[in-house]
Design a protein around this nucleic acid. Structure first.
Lengths: 119, 119
DNA sequence: TTAGTATATGAGCAGTTGCTCAAATGATAA
DNA sequence: TTATCATTTGAGCAACTGCTCATATACTAA
Protein backbone atom coordinates (compact mmCIF):
# COMPACT_ATOMS: atom_id res chain seq x y z
CA UNK A 1 0.00 0.00 0.00
CA UNK A 2 3.07 2.22 0.20
CA UNK A 3 3.39 2.31 -3.56
CA UNK A 4 1.81 5.24 -5.32
CA UNK A 5 0.21 4.23 -8.57
CA UNK A 6 -1.79 6.89 -10.31
CA UNK A 7 -1.84 5.35 -13.74
CA UNK A 8 -2.34 1.71 -12.89
CA UNK A 9 -5.42 2.51 -10.80
CA UNK A 10 -8.62 1.05 -12.22
CA UNK A 11 -10.72 3.90 -10.88
CA UNK A 12 -11.86 6.91 -12.80
CA UNK A 13 -10.19 10.08 -11.70
CA UNK A 14 -12.05 13.27 -12.36
CA UNK A 15 -9.62 15.70 -10.79
CA UNK A 16 -6.12 14.36 -11.30
CA UNK A 17 -4.41 17.38 -9.82
CA UNK A 18 -6.47 17.26 -6.64
CA UNK A 19 -5.63 13.60 -6.19
CA UNK A 20 -1.95 14.20 -6.93
CA UNK A 21 -1.84 17.00 -4.39
CA UNK A 22 -3.61 14.87 -1.80
CA UNK A 23 -1.01 12.17 -2.35
CA UNK A 24 1.79 14.67 -1.96
CA UNK A 25 0.46 16.01 1.34
CA UNK A 26 -0.59 12.62 2.71
CA UNK A 27 0.82 11.41 6.00
CA UNK A 28 3.00 8.31 5.96
CA UNK A 29 0.89 5.15 5.79
CA UNK A 30 2.35 3.95 9.08
CA UNK A 31 1.25 7.15 10.77
CA UNK A 32 -2.26 6.90 9.33
CA UNK A 33 -2.51 3.37 10.69
CA UNK A 34 -1.24 4.51 14.08
CA UNK A 35 -3.88 7.23 14.14
CA UNK A 36 -6.67 4.80 13.32
CA UNK A 37 -5.31 2.37 15.89
CA UNK A 38 -5.25 5.06 18.57
CA UNK A 39 -8.86 6.01 17.90
CA UNK A 40 -9.84 2.35 18.21
CA UNK A 41 -9.02 2.66 21.89
CA UNK A 42 -11.89 5.14 22.25
CA UNK A 43 -14.23 3.28 19.91
CA UNK A 44 -15.76 0.88 22.41
CA UNK A 45 -18.27 1.48 25.17
CA UNK A 46 -16.32 -0.37 27.85
CA UNK A 47 -13.02 1.33 27.12
CA UNK A 48 -14.76 4.70 26.94
CA UNK A 49 -16.29 4.12 30.38
CA UNK A 50 -12.88 3.14 31.74
CA UNK A 51 -11.28 6.28 30.33
CA UNK A 52 -14.10 8.49 31.59
CA UNK A 53 -13.74 6.98 35.06
CA UNK A 54 -9.97 7.47 35.06
CA UNK A 55 -10.39 11.13 34.12
CA UNK A 56 -11.90 11.54 37.61
CA UNK A 57 -9.74 9.22 39.71
CA UNK A 58 -7.19 6.45 39.55
CA UNK A 59 -8.88 3.10 40.05
CA UNK A 60 -7.98 -0.56 40.44
CA UNK A 61 -9.14 -3.38 38.19
CA UNK A 62 -11.81 -4.78 40.46
CA UNK A 63 -13.37 -1.37 41.08
CA UNK A 64 -13.54 -0.75 37.34
CA UNK A 65 -15.11 -4.18 36.90
CA UNK A 66 -17.74 -3.31 39.50
CA UNK A 67 -18.35 0.09 37.93
CA UNK A 68 -18.82 -1.32 34.43
CA UNK A 69 -20.57 -4.51 35.56
CA UNK A 70 -18.25 -6.70 33.53
CA UNK A 71 -15.69 -9.29 34.59
CA UNK A 72 -12.28 -8.35 35.94
CA UNK A 73 -10.78 -10.35 33.12
CA UNK A 74 -12.57 -8.26 30.54
CA UNK A 75 -11.37 -5.08 32.24
CA UNK A 76 -7.83 -6.40 32.35
CA UNK A 77 -7.88 -7.19 28.63
CA UNK A 78 -9.08 -3.67 27.84
CA UNK A 79 -6.52 -2.09 30.16
CA UNK A 80 -3.77 -3.98 28.40
CA UNK A 81 -4.86 -2.42 25.12
CA UNK A 82 -4.99 1.03 26.70
CA UNK A 83 -1.53 0.47 28.20
CA UNK A 84 -0.17 -0.60 24.81
CA UNK A 85 -1.16 2.74 23.31
CA UNK A 86 0.21 4.63 26.30
CA UNK A 87 -3.17 6.01 27.28
CA UNK A 88 -2.99 4.64 30.83
CA UNK A 89 -0.28 3.65 33.29
CA UNK A 90 -0.46 1.99 36.67
CA UNK A 91 1.27 1.98 40.02
CA UNK A 92 1.42 -1.02 42.28
CA UNK A 93 0.46 -0.86 45.94
CA UNK A 94 0.88 -4.33 47.34
CA UNK A 95 -1.17 -6.68 45.24
CA UNK A 96 -3.37 -3.88 43.89
CA UNK A 97 -2.64 -2.07 40.62
CA UNK A 98 -4.00 1.45 40.39
CA UNK A 99 -4.57 2.65 36.86
CA UNK A 100 -4.55 6.28 35.80
CA UNK A 101 -4.41 8.29 32.58
CA UNK A 102 -0.94 8.68 31.17
CA UNK A 103 -1.33 12.24 29.89
CA UNK A 104 -3.94 14.87 29.11
CA UNK A 105 -4.64 13.79 25.52
CA UNK A 106 -7.47 11.50 26.57
CA UNK A 107 -9.18 14.39 28.26
CA UNK A 108 -8.74 16.68 25.27
CA UNK A 109 -9.97 14.11 22.77
CA UNK A 110 -13.06 13.33 24.80
CA UNK A 111 -13.77 17.01 25.36
CA UNK A 112 -13.74 17.77 21.62
CA UNK A 113 -15.79 14.66 20.85
CA UNK A 114 -18.40 15.66 23.43
CA UNK A 115 -18.54 19.12 21.87
CA UNK A 116 -19.29 17.48 18.54
CA UNK A 117 -22.06 15.17 19.68
CA UNK A 118 -23.70 17.80 21.90
CA UNK A 119 -24.05 20.58 19.38
CA UNK B 1 -27.57 -1.22 31.31
CA UNK B 2 -29.19 1.99 32.53
CA UNK B 3 -29.85 0.46 35.94
CA UNK B 4 -27.29 1.10 38.62
CA UNK B 5 -26.77 -1.93 40.79
CA UNK B 6 -24.06 -1.65 43.37
CA UNK B 7 -25.14 -4.44 45.64
CA UNK B 8 -26.18 -7.04 43.10
CA UNK B 9 -22.78 -6.87 41.39
CA UNK B 10 -20.86 -10.13 41.60
CA UNK B 11 -17.49 -8.36 41.59
CA UNK B 12 -15.35 -7.54 44.56
CA UNK B 13 -15.21 -3.85 45.27
CA UNK B 14 -12.18 -2.62 47.12
CA UNK B 15 -13.02 1.07 47.22
CA UNK B 16 -16.78 1.39 47.43
CA UNK B 17 -16.73 5.16 47.79
CA UNK B 18 -14.60 5.63 44.68
CA UNK B 19 -16.96 3.46 42.67
CA UNK B 20 -20.01 5.24 44.06
CA UNK B 21 -18.50 8.61 43.17
CA UNK B 22 -17.60 7.41 39.68
CA UNK B 23 -21.20 6.31 39.21
CA UNK B 24 -22.46 9.63 40.41
CA UNK B 25 -20.27 11.59 37.98
CA UNK B 26 -20.75 9.22 35.06
CA UNK B 27 -22.15 10.48 31.78
CA UNK B 28 -25.49 9.11 30.63
CA UNK B 29 -25.09 5.69 29.04
CA UNK B 30 -26.50 7.00 25.78
CA UNK B 31 -23.87 9.70 25.66
CA UNK B 32 -21.07 7.24 26.38
CA UNK B 33 -22.31 5.09 23.51
CA UNK B 34 -22.50 8.12 21.23
CA UNK B 35 -18.91 9.00 22.13
CA UNK B 36 -17.65 5.50 21.37
CA UNK B 37 -19.64 5.50 18.15
CA UNK B 38 -18.16 8.82 17.08
CA UNK B 39 -14.62 7.58 17.68
CA UNK B 40 -15.39 4.50 15.56
CA UNK B 41 -15.52 6.85 12.59
CA UNK B 42 -11.83 7.58 13.10
CA UNK B 43 -10.88 4.02 13.98
CA UNK B 44 -10.33 2.67 10.49
CA UNK B 45 -7.51 3.28 8.04
CA UNK B 46 -9.74 4.02 5.07
CA UNK B 47 -11.96 6.46 6.90
CA UNK B 48 -8.92 8.12 8.43
CA UNK B 49 -7.42 8.61 4.96
CA UNK B 50 -10.69 10.07 3.73
CA UNK B 51 -10.86 12.51 6.63
CA UNK B 52 -7.21 13.49 6.22
CA UNK B 53 -7.78 14.15 2.52
CA UNK B 54 -10.88 16.24 3.20
CA UNK B 55 -8.96 18.36 5.69
CA UNK B 56 -7.01 19.62 2.66
CA UNK B 57 -9.73 19.85 -0.02
CA UNK B 58 -13.25 18.84 -0.84
CA UNK B 59 -13.22 15.77 -3.09
CA UNK B 60 -15.63 13.60 -5.04
CA UNK B 61 -16.19 9.87 -4.52
CA UNK B 62 -14.18 8.66 -7.49
CA UNK B 63 -11.18 10.82 -6.61
CA UNK B 64 -11.21 9.46 -3.09
CA UNK B 65 -11.43 5.94 -4.50
CA UNK B 66 -8.39 6.63 -6.69
CA UNK B 67 -6.51 8.17 -3.78
CA UNK B 68 -7.17 5.25 -1.44
CA UNK B 69 -6.93 2.57 -4.14
CA UNK B 70 -10.23 1.01 -3.10
CA UNK B 71 -13.53 0.73 -4.95
CA UNK B 72 -15.94 3.63 -5.26
CA UNK B 73 -18.54 1.47 -3.58
CA UNK B 74 -16.31 1.01 -0.56
CA UNK B 75 -15.71 4.77 -0.39
CA UNK B 76 -19.42 5.44 -0.67
CA UNK B 77 -20.18 3.04 2.18
CA UNK B 78 -17.63 4.79 4.40
CA UNK B 79 -18.89 8.25 3.43
CA UNK B 80 -22.39 7.25 4.42
CA UNK B 81 -21.12 6.39 7.88
CA UNK B 82 -19.24 9.69 8.11
CA UNK B 83 -22.35 11.54 6.94
CA UNK B 84 -24.46 9.79 9.57
CA UNK B 85 -22.25 11.15 12.33
CA UNK B 86 -22.24 14.62 10.78
CA UNK B 87 -18.50 14.57 10.15
CA UNK B 88 -18.84 15.28 6.42
CA UNK B 89 -21.37 16.94 4.12
CA UNK B 90 -21.56 17.17 0.37
CA UNK B 91 -22.67 19.54 -2.35
CA UNK B 92 -23.88 18.41 -5.73
CA UNK B 93 -22.52 19.82 -8.98
CA UNK B 94 -24.28 18.05 -11.79
CA UNK B 95 -23.80 14.33 -11.31
CA UNK B 96 -20.79 14.80 -9.07
CA UNK B 97 -20.99 14.97 -5.29
CA UNK B 98 -18.23 16.91 -3.58
CA UNK B 99 -17.62 15.90 0.01
CA UNK B 100 -16.10 18.15 2.65
CA UNK B 101 -15.71 18.22 6.43
CA UNK B 102 -18.76 19.44 8.29
CA UNK B 103 -16.95 21.35 11.05
CA UNK B 104 -13.55 21.80 12.63
CA UNK B 105 -13.86 18.97 15.18
CA UNK B 106 -12.28 16.44 12.83
CA UNK B 107 -9.25 18.64 12.50
CA UNK B 108 -8.98 19.15 16.25
CA UNK B 109 -9.36 15.48 17.07
CA UNK B 110 -6.74 14.43 14.57
CA UNK B 111 -4.37 17.16 15.72
CA UNK B 112 -4.51 15.98 19.35
CA UNK B 113 -4.21 12.34 18.30
CA UNK B 114 -1.13 13.11 16.20
CA UNK B 115 0.36 14.93 19.16
CA UNK B 116 -0.11 11.79 21.22
CA UNK B 117 1.42 9.30 18.81
CA UNK B 118 4.33 11.58 17.89
CA UNK B 119 5.59 12.34 21.37
C1' DT C 1 5.75 -23.25 52.73
C1' DT C 2 0.57 -22.82 52.00
C1' DA C 3 -3.66 -20.25 51.23
C1' DG C 4 -5.80 -16.41 49.63
C1' DT C 5 -6.12 -12.06 46.97
C1' DA C 6 -5.43 -9.16 42.73
C1' DT C 7 -4.41 -9.19 38.18
C1' DA C 8 -2.85 -11.06 33.64
C1' DT C 9 -3.09 -14.08 29.82
C1' DG C 10 -4.45 -17.51 26.05
C1' DA C 11 -7.99 -20.02 23.64
C1' DG C 12 -12.18 -19.94 21.64
C1' DC C 13 -16.67 -18.28 20.28
C1' DA C 14 -20.50 -14.95 18.96
C1' DG C 15 -21.22 -10.58 17.18
C1' DT C 16 -19.46 -6.84 14.34
C1' DT C 17 -17.11 -4.65 10.49
C1' DG C 18 -15.18 -3.50 5.80
C1' DC C 19 -14.87 -5.15 1.70
C1' DT C 20 -16.68 -6.97 -3.09
C1' DC C 21 -20.20 -7.78 -6.29
C1' DA C 22 -24.50 -6.93 -8.47
C1' DA C 23 -28.15 -4.04 -8.98
C1' DA C 24 -30.60 0.46 -8.31
C1' DT C 25 -30.88 5.48 -8.37
C1' DG C 26 -30.10 10.23 -10.01
C1' DA C 27 -28.25 13.45 -13.28
C1' DT C 28 -26.69 14.69 -18.02
C1' DA C 29 -26.54 14.57 -22.91
C1' DA C 30 -27.94 12.89 -27.41
C1' DT D 1 -36.77 8.38 -25.04
C1' DT D 2 -31.98 5.95 -24.58
C1' DA D 3 -27.19 5.79 -23.15
C1' DT D 4 -23.84 6.96 -20.05
C1' DC D 5 -21.74 8.71 -15.89
C1' DA D 6 -21.46 9.31 -10.72
C1' DT D 7 -22.98 7.52 -6.80
C1' DT D 8 -25.76 4.66 -3.62
C1' DT D 9 -27.47 0.55 -1.73
C1' DG D 10 -28.18 -4.42 -0.13
C1' DA D 11 -26.46 -9.04 0.33
C1' DG D 12 -22.98 -11.86 1.65
C1' DC D 13 -18.49 -13.23 3.21
C1' DA D 14 -13.74 -13.09 5.44
C1' DA D 15 -11.38 -10.84 9.02
C1' DC D 16 -11.52 -8.71 13.39
C1' DT D 17 -13.14 -7.71 18.19
C1' DG D 18 -14.80 -8.18 22.98
C1' DC D 19 -16.34 -11.23 25.83
C1' DT D 20 -16.10 -15.70 28.88
C1' DC D 21 -13.73 -19.39 30.87
C1' DA D 22 -9.79 -21.66 32.56
C1' DT D 23 -5.36 -21.07 33.93
C1' DA D 24 -1.12 -18.59 35.21
C1' DT D 25 1.36 -15.06 37.67
C1' DA D 26 2.47 -11.76 41.46
C1' DC D 27 1.98 -10.32 45.88
C1' DT D 28 0.56 -10.81 51.04
C1' DA D 29 -0.17 -13.07 55.27
C1' DA D 30 -0.05 -16.98 58.23
Amino acid sequence: MEEIKIDSCQCRIIHEELVAEARKNALATSEVEELAYLFKAFADGSRMKILLALIQNEMCVCDLAALLSISESAVSHQLRLLRTMRLVTNRREGAVLYYRLNDDHVNELIRVALEHIRE
